[in-house]
Amino acid sequence: MSKQQGEVWRALGLMSGTSLDGIDVAVLDTDGERVLGRGLPATYPYSDAFRGQLREGLAEAAGLQSRSARPGRLKLLERYLTELHGEAVANYLADHDIPPESIDVIGFHGQTVLHRPEAGLTVQLGDGALLAGLCGRPVVYDLRSADVAAGGQGAPLASVYHRALADDIAQRPLVILNLGGVANVTWIGPDGTLIAFDTGPASAMIDDWCQAKAGLPFDIGGQLAARGHADEDIVRGWLAKPFFALPPPKSLDRNDFDAAPIAGMSAEDGAATLTAFSAAAVAQALDHLPQRPELWIASGGGRKNATLLGMIAERVGAPVLPAEEFGIDGDGVEAEAWAYLAVRSRLGLPITFPGTTGVTTPLTGGLLADVAN
C-alpha cells in the first residue's frame, strides 16, 4: 500500500543530468516537505568509452523532434545507460548495507541529451520501466516534461529541495548555486520566496575543452585555468548573447554556446577564458534578483574548482562557500533532490512553481513505473 502525506518515505535519487561524469546516488528520508535524514552519497563514474558514446549521442539527439523518439544508436544507448543505473543502485545499496525493500521509491533523472523548452521539448535518456524491473522498486522518472508541456522551462527543478535544505540557515536572502554541466541559482528570500533559473554554462564547456585540448576529463581543482589568461573580450562577446538579458525563468541546453572563439588558444588560456565566462554568467544573475544575496552556497562538481569559485566570489562581491561548510554534501544535493521530488510526485505535491520555471501555477510532475506484485 502506498504511503500517504505525513508519513516518512525512504527514497533513492539518481542523477546524471547534463554532465558526463557518471551517476550520483543518494538516499533521503522525507515526508515530502521536511528533510528528515540523509545518507552518504556516492558517485559511480562512467568509463571513458561510455563517455565517448554519450558525446556521440548528444550529437545525434540534436535533431530530435519528440520526447519519445530514439533514432539510430540512441535506443541502445538508453538501454545501456539504464542498466548502468541499475548496477549503480545495486552497488549503492550493498555498499551502504541498505535493504532494497526499505526503499519506497526511486527518483530517476536520466541523462539529458536535449533541452529545448521553447519548442516544448526536453529529452532525458532513461527507461523508467526497465529500471523498476531491474531494481524491483517503484521508479518516478521524466520529472521535467509536465512542466515543459504546460509552458514552463522544465528547469531548474531542485529549488524546492534547496529551500528545504536551507531551512536552518539564518542568512537571507541566500543563493544555492549548482555548478553542474550548466549552472543554476536558487534565490531564497527572507519569507521563503523562490526564484530560480539557469545562469549559463558551468562545467560542461570547461570539461569538453579539457578533454579535447589536454586529454583531461575536467580541470582538476581549476589548475589549468589558474595557469592561463582569460580573454575578457571573448567573455563579453558571449555575454552579449540574448539569453543573458532575458528575465527569468529561463533555462539552457549544455550545447547552447559555441567554443569556436577560443579554438586557437592554448589549453590553459582556453580554460581560463571559459572559467571566467562561467563566473561572469553567474554574476549576471544579480541583474535579475530582487535583493543581493548575503551568501552563496555552491554545490555540484564545479564547487571543487577553486579557480571558478574565486572568480565567482570576486564578481558577485559576496562569500561563495562550498556546501560542505553547511553540513551539506555538495556531490549529493542533486541526487537527493531527485529523491525528494520523487516523493513529492507520489504525494501529488508541486515540484515546479511560477518563480522557478515560469509555469503559470504550481505543478506536480513525473511518471510512475511501478513493480508488478
Rank of each mutant, 00 (worst) to 15 (best):
G310M: 00
G327R: 09
K213V: 01
K304G: 00
P117S: 12
G86P: 11
N91E: 14
G237Q: 14
Y46H: 13
A281Q: 02
V185Y: 04
G355A: 10
M15I: 08
R70I: 11
I312G: 04
I23R: 11
D21C: 10
L216Q: 14
L368I: 14
I23H: 08
L289D: 00
I188R: 09
W9Y: 15
S19C: 11
V185Q: 08
L125D: 05
L130K: 12
L239T: 08
G300Q: 02
F277K: 01
T193H: 06
K213N: 10
A11H: 11
G222V: 03
L131R: 08
F244M: 09
D287N: 14
A149Y: 01
R67W: 06
K213M: 14
P45Y: 07
W187M: 08
Q111E: 10
R137Y: 12
A204C: 05
A62R: 15
V359G: 06
K304I: 00
V89Q: 09
P290C: 05
A202E: 02
A146E: 14
V333G: 00
F277V: 01
V282F: 01
A59V: 14
L295D: 00
L14P: 06
D258I: 05
G154C: 10
Q171P: 04
D208H: 12
Q53G: 01
I98W: 08
P248H: 07
A230Y: 05
L308Q: 05
I262N: 02
C135T: 15
W338M: 15
L174K: 11
A226N: 04
G151L: 10
G32W: 08
D127A: 14
G180K: 10
